[in-house]
Write a protein that binds this DNA or RNA. Sequence first.
DNA 1: CATGAATGAGTCTTCATTCAT
DNA 2: CATGAATGAAGACTCATTCAT
Lengths: 216, 216, 216, 216
Amino acid sequence: MATDMPQKDIETIVKDQDLIGRRHLQICDAALKLFSRKGFHRTTVREIAEACGLGIGTLYSYIKTKEDILHLVYRRILESFEARMLEATRGIQDPRLQLKAALEETLKIYDECQDVVLLLYQESHALGRQGLQGLFEVDRTYVGFFREILDRGIRAGQFAVKEPHLLAVCILFLCAVWDLKRWNLQGYTLETVIESLTTLILNGISADPLVKLQPQ
Amino acid sequence: MATDMPQKDIETIVKDQDLIGRRHLQICDAALKLFSRKGFHRTTVREIAEACGLGIGTLYSYIKTKEDILHLVYRRILESFEARMLEATRGIQDPRLQLKAALEETLKIYDECQDVVLLLYQESHALGRQGLQGLFEVDRTYVGFFREILDRGIRAGQFAVKEPHLLAVCILFLCAVWDLKRWNLQGYTLETVIESLTTLILNGISADPLVKLQPQ
Amino acid sequence: MATDMPQKDIETIVKDQDLIGRRHLQICDAALKLFSRKGFHRTTVREIAEACGLGIGTLYSYIKTKEDILHLVYRRILESFEARMLEATRGIQDPRLQLKAALEETLKIYDECQDVVLLLYQESHALGRQGLQGLFEVDRTYVGFFREILDRGIRAGQFAVKEPHLLAVCILFLCAVWDLKRWNLQGYTLETVIESLTTLILNGISADPLVKLQPQ
Amino acid sequence: MATDMPQKDIETIVKDQDLIGRRHLQICDAALKLFSRKGFHRTTVREIAEACGLGIGTLYSYIKTKEDILHLVYRRILESFEARMLEATRGIQDPRLQLKAALEETLKIYDECQDVVLLLYQESHALGRQGLQGLFEVDRTYVGFFREILDRGIRAGQFAVKEPHLLAVCILFLCAVWDLKRWNLQGYTLETVIESLTTLILNGISADPLVKLQPQ
DNA sequence: CATGAATGAGTCTTCATTCAT
DNA sequence: CATGAATGAAGACTCATTCAT
């Protein structure tokens, strides 16, 4: 589904593709921690180099600019998110249940990766046009996944949704509330949020008014 | 309702409160444009000074640090948002209609002030702890407004919501989708979004299942 | 004796000599405190203005440059030092006793005005050539005072000194040890220092070897 | 005796200790000249960088702050002073002669390094607390050297001194008169000063009054 | 392929001084 | 005479990036 994201493949001096892969992982791990803690701008390339045990020069053999590191990090994050999502919803037939599962897993991921989601929303503008395009693409596949669930539900007569794509975007976005507005949600537990959001959305799109009473 | 946000009043060298007020407006206007276009980090203080027709020294008579400018901008934005919201929903009695109006107005504002909303979400981490507290406070009053509508609807038996505060946060947050995910919503018009979101939310929280069929 | 120091009279915009005098005192008092605490460079003109209750503009009506303030301060300090010295040694006939009194008084002054003496030694290079000349002049009169005592003692056969001016300079300078090397003299009291220095100097210049045994 | 001054070792970005050593020498040489001529405050970091043929960035790879440069300079100066002193007085048995030699050498050093001594006295307050501590420490070892001579003389019955440490401080301090009051000692030669100071001090501390007549 | 020293453009911020009111 | 807002030159320091070894 998302194996072919537009790689905007980072130009490297080193040519050994295998080594590049390993180094990129190394760099991602170090950079992710630093970016989460201090943000993109306040993290220096030198710090990243130190944190991943490479010389600065070596680091620069595997990237062209600092921005590339952000790319690497984003790509990695989104890949892992997507993998988890697919895993969690695979094989569920009922659209309503599958949507529920997708919501729950997304919120769980967002709960675990709070810093990362913040990073995603706050520093993405540090990417150039081209870089953003890549992100958008990935996001689209992620959204596409929700959209498929909606489509199946609509075809099955379970969901009444005029604009499935729009709704998919909204639903995915809404999950981020747990991270982006966390300071305003201090008293709540993840469970409460999962339940409330699930209720809101399922009721919001349900075609059958009578179903609604149960979850509430 | 929110006239007394915690001012964290910027220390200035100039004493004339009136002049300070005017200059701050001047600075806000210039900074807002630049921040929207280039982001906080990529905008230099010198650029801001030039853009508002002040010498750097003069600019620094009205602020202590660059961060203060971001404060000024944020405070200004949120004040104006709140004012518009209050204006648009004042006097509407029916909670359902009032919520509809609030949603519509918020989305309209967010449509007009796309850059500003992005700024709000992306650069807020450039503020220090104290500065963030101020923002949160304002946000809480804004959220509180939605919450009051929900509460009235619940009391009137129109809404079925377990966690009104949580829902209020979600609803307000959801409006930002139009700005934060705009690149994934290219084909849609504001009207479509207003309608879809309104439907989703009203259905999502409606206590009476039979009402739901009409708007859809 | 030193009423006619070369005034390098500060150019002022204000012409009322009387007012100038009062303002200069005002400025001196404020500046002295600030300079002592923070040093000349780290004290801003604005701080001085605030400390003496004048507007910056007003302050600048009574001086031409920041350096002028240092002048004012130095001149004031030296005048007061000299006055105290004269007072303390007036009328003493015996050169040995007079030298003792002069030493004692100088050390007492230096003890009371530790910060000021440091200021004198550390910031004088902030003065331009012309300003330094003024200081030197004052210092010379101060030194001259010691020299006169030495001369009288030499004529009286009490002191054996080849280079009285040089010695006078040294003696006066030596007194500053209490301020400039204070951190290396932590355990000592003023009294001990007075006694030790007096002994050293009187023995060092005494013409009559037999006298020496008594004070030690 | 003073091989282990508290290094407060400057944090550097560059790791190669050997290179650091060489660069620090380079920086010292350039900075010393500039500081002597223009003082610490009036010398810019950029000037220092140019004077030692490094880019500013490079310079800052070897120091953390401008103050560090002053440190470097001071440390270097004091080390060289001490080395010369030790060399000049080594192996002299008679305390009186050794003190004479120490005085003479110190004054010669101070004569050659007039600018440096001024720097030492005038700019030391630009150092922070910690930096000053380092200086004091070095000064103490220097003073300790004089003190040892005095102690030996006292034990040998040649000197009559109640407070040897205090006297040592005074003696060392007195040598600085040649630099700090030079403008008031224009007509004198180094030889005259050496002779006068030596006479003053040796007579001042001599235990045997009869010896005194000879040097005078 | 690895390293890390070198670079300098660019950043925020300060402060003595002036001048219109 | 008094005031204080305006000014901009200048300063210390950072950091992404390169390149010789």
